[in-house]
């Protein structure tokens, strides 16, 4: 393990969110000027990629970048119930994590997000003026499509496996005892408000003002970037950002049952970071 890792709880809107603060060790060289907040993906996707985030944070940290990994309110060890929060709440958690980095005296800030976490990171970067680096791993560009695909995939899995073990019950709209409506999505209560807010995500339309450095990473079996990631690239470029696109042939780390170390994904991101931040390693 390189650097110092401190698990902690941070205050966020009256709740405590779990975070791990990775600080570079003295022998990691001169600490570079960009500190990152990592933005995890949605629901069970977070559990699947948790270790990949840890690996990425450790690698970045070994190159001199402090990293703060957070869990949104209602997720993981953070306080609150999953169903009580929405995308807007989680964006606020990211903002509060950035505020923590500012309090640590970090003048340059970066966000790294995966899937829905990338979408939230992109939106937060639009609204704050001091995020310089934005790393979006397989961002959810269209939230409506994302929700719809998730529900269809769940239904399909249920149909395929019903007789030999079954899947969770159909994700139909339900009402909790307190009157709230939502979906039991594989053990996560997705409130009607959350469904609406995810449905409203349109990253291409949202990317209007960010002028920092962006890395868009497509994670798939394809070695060339697809249409969606290219459209997002164009949008960021026209907003004045400096954009790079990577197509990494890697397994879907957010959807794997077994553990997997995404070497290519991590290495290509580190290479981009080092080129951008002119990291000087002084031993």
């Amino acid at each position: 393990m390189s650097g110092i890792e401190t698990p902690m709880f941070l205050a966020s809107e009256g709740r405590r969110i779990f975070a791990v603060w990775h600080q570079p060790a003295a022998d990691a060289g001169k600490v570079t000027d960009t500190a990152f907040v990592f933005c995890p993906p949605f629901a069970e996707e977070e559990k699947c990629c948790h270790r990949a985030f840890v690996d990425m944070a450790r690698k970045l940290c070994s190159r001199g970048h402090p990293v703060l990994r957070i869990q949104y309110r209602g997720c993981g060890d953070s306080e609150g119930d999953f169903g009580d929060f929405s995308c807007a709440d989680w964006e606020q958690d990211i903002n509060n994590a950035l505020a923590f980095l500012r309090r640590q005296g970090r003048p340059r800030l970066g966000l790294l997000g995966l899937r829905l976490g990338a979408s939230l990171a992109g939106r937060v970067a639009e609204s704050t003026g001091d995020v310089q680096n934005l790393i979006l791993w397989e961002p959810i560009v269209n939230g409506r499509q994302y929700m719809s695909l998730n529900l269809r995939r769940k239904l399909l899995r249920r149909m395929l496996t019903d007789k030999e073990g079954g899947e969770s019950p159909p994700a139909s709209q339900a009402t909790m005892t307190d009157g709230r409506t939502g979906i039991d999505f594989e053990g996560y209560w997705i409130s009607a408000e959350m469904q609406t807010q995810i449905g409203e995500i349109d990253l291409i339309a949202d990317a209007k003002r960010f002028r920092g450095e962006v890395l868009l990473t497509q994670i798939s079996s394809q070695s060339s970037p697809g249409k969606t990631i290219r459209s997002l690239e164009d949008r960021y470029a026209s907003a004045g950002a400096s954009v790079a696109v990577e197509a990494v042939v890697e397994q879907p780390i957010w959807n794997l049952l077994d553990l997997f170390h995404p070497t290519q994904l991590i290495d290509s991101t580190i290479d981009w970071m080092l080129a951008r931040n002119r990291c000087v390693v002084e031993r």
């Binding site: 629901a43 069970e44 559990k47 948790h50 270790r51 993981g76 060890d77 594989e186 996560y188």
Partner: peptide, 9 residues
């Protein structure tokens, strides 16, 4: 392959 929160927390 999980961690301390368990499946779906």
């Amino acid at each position: 392959s999980g961690y301390r929160v368990g499946p779906h927390g």
